[in-house]
Every structure is written in C-alpha cells, then in structure tokens.
Amino acid sequence: MAQDTTALRVAGSTAASGSAAAVERRANIFGMTQQAEVAVLRPRDCGRWPHGLRAAMAARIAALNGEPELAGHYRTDAGDYAALADPSVDGSGQGLAEVMAFMDKVAVETRDVSAPDIASLQAAGIGDADIVRLCELNAFLAYQLRVIAGLRVLNEVYA
C-alpha cells in the first residue's frame, strides 16, 4: 500500500487486496481524501466548532452509519466532547441539542432536510459560516464512510 490514509486503513485495504492496483492508480484521490479529513476535522479556523467537538461529531456520524472502527478513529480525538460521540446523547447537557439534531438528520435523513432546519439553527444564534462548517463536516463524513464501505465489499468480491 502506497499510502497510509484513514479510508484505506479502516477498509482493511492493503497491497494484497483485490483493489490494490486500482487504488494505486487513484493514489491522488486517496491523498486528497486525507487532506479533506484534515480540512474538516482540524482546520486552522474552526469557527464555533473546536477540534474535539468536530471529532465527536465525526464519530457520531460514523456510529449512526454502522462504522464502529471509523467512529473509534475519531473518538480518540474528542476530548471533553467524547460523550457526544454516542448518538443516544442528545447534546442538551452541552447546550448543543439543536446542533446534534441537525447533524443526525443531515447524516441519515438527508432527503427530509428542508429550509426550516437551517432556519432553526439561525434562530439558535448560529452564524451562516458556522452552519456551512457543520455541513462540510457532515458531508465529508458521508463520503469517507461510503468509500470505506464500498472498498470493503470490493475487496471481498475481487479478492
């Protein structure tokens, strides 16, 4: 394996996997995927969402989507926010109930998201830039966990 990236590691992709040659030809994409992880999890300008909270929300989205190993990868960086990595914690104890409800809906009930969901975040005092930051984190996780789920079955069938 040419690169050590979260997606390849969690999917169990190695140089011996059926997808190894194809992955090698898309090495640029796996490299940029890892850069995107840094951009949404550990940005220089994190706005209202510190790195620990971002890690907890990433772990939560992975858990909601049945990816416990990816959830574990992110939970280790969640620090004081680790409780929020558990989707059964609604965030009210941390003053983040609206944010957790929004993140859960975008992650798993995407098609049902509508204008009032954004309006309710704005009504809770969350600025537009911070709303976009939440969406980018959620959207990246949706991509990364699906690359992992897809690679895993690819390697099972094209062994």
Binding site: R26, T110, V147
Partner: peptide, 28 residues
Amino acid sequence: LDEAEVLDLILSSALFGWANRLMHVLGD
C-alpha cells in the same frame, strides 16, 4: 466491470453523498 471501474463507481457515488449534503441542505 473490472476492479478499477468498481472503485471509480464507489468514489463517484460516495462523492455525491458529500455533494448532496451541501446542495440539498444549504439551498433550494
């Protein structure tokens, strides 16, 4: 389909898990 085509399908489908969560969530 060969492995390379399946990988590209995984990537393009997954990418729209990302794009949809911006386009569909942030606007009408």
